[in-house]
């Protein structure tokens, strides 16, 4: 009998303690971020959508070899006079990334050897949306300007407000003869 009563009392007390915990949390501020009115800026190392700078790229193909999902393809080009940057001609003919296959691992960014800024990097964009599968492959051509900014010459990030958005990069034209 005593066992029973102590069990009932114990159960009662534990129930009330649990209720107190939820009451306490109810009176504290919420932790919700109301997307899309409020957006969080990811931390600098965040691996968002890939971004590419055609003027810096030297078309070495390290990223193509490093990618585990084989989502990058490129073609080299002979230097042409009017696409110079820092006195170095652009070496790339075209460069495509298939965002459907990218698994955001960062191996391509690590393998890119260009200095002082990398030609391929993970931006902070986490809002890319595609409606068809063809749209997922984006292509940069020789002479395309860069949208947004990456890390500056000092290795620090430019203003996050100017980060690149993938929607600004043109879709690869669906053409059997171009990869």
């Amino acid at each position: 009998m005593k066992n029973y009563l102590s069990f009932v009392a114990d159960a009662f007390v534990n129930t009330l303690k649990g209720l107190w915990v939820t009451l306490e949390v109810m009176c504290l501020p919420v932790i919700t971020v109301q997307y899309p009115t409020e957006k969080l800026v990811p931390y600098p190392r965040f691996r968002g959508m890939l971004a590419y700078d055609a003027k810096v790229c030297i078309a070495c193909g390290m990223c193509v070899r490093a990618c585990p999902s084989r989502c990058i393809a490129l073609a080299k080009a002979a230097p042409v006079g009017d696409t110079m940057r820092h006195g170095v001609p652009a070496r790339i003919e075209w460069y495509t990334i298939d965002y459907g296959r990218c698994n955001f691992c960062g191996l391509c960014e690590e393998s890119c050897p260009t200095k002082p800024v990398k030609a391929l990097w993970h931006s902070l964009d986490y809002e890319a949306v595609f409606s068809t599968r063809e749209e997922m492959t984006r292509r940069w051509e020789r002479g395309d300007t860069l949208w947004g900014t990456a890390r500056g010459a000092d290795g620090q990030f430019a203003a996050v407000a100017d980060q690149i958005h993938i929607q600004n990069v043109p879709v690869r034209p669906f053409d059997r003869h171009s990869p």
């Binding site: 932790i31 971020v33 957006k39 969080l40 800026v41 996050v160 407000a161 958005h165």
Partner: peptide, 22 residues
């Protein structure tokens, strides 16, 4: 920070950690 590209407000990160708020 106001993101002029898409017209939305960007919030800094440290406000939403419960440890700071609570």
């Amino acid at each position: 920070v106001f993101n002029h590209a898409n017209g939305r407000l960007l919030m800094p990160d440290n406000r939403y950690w419960p440890s700071r708020k609570w």
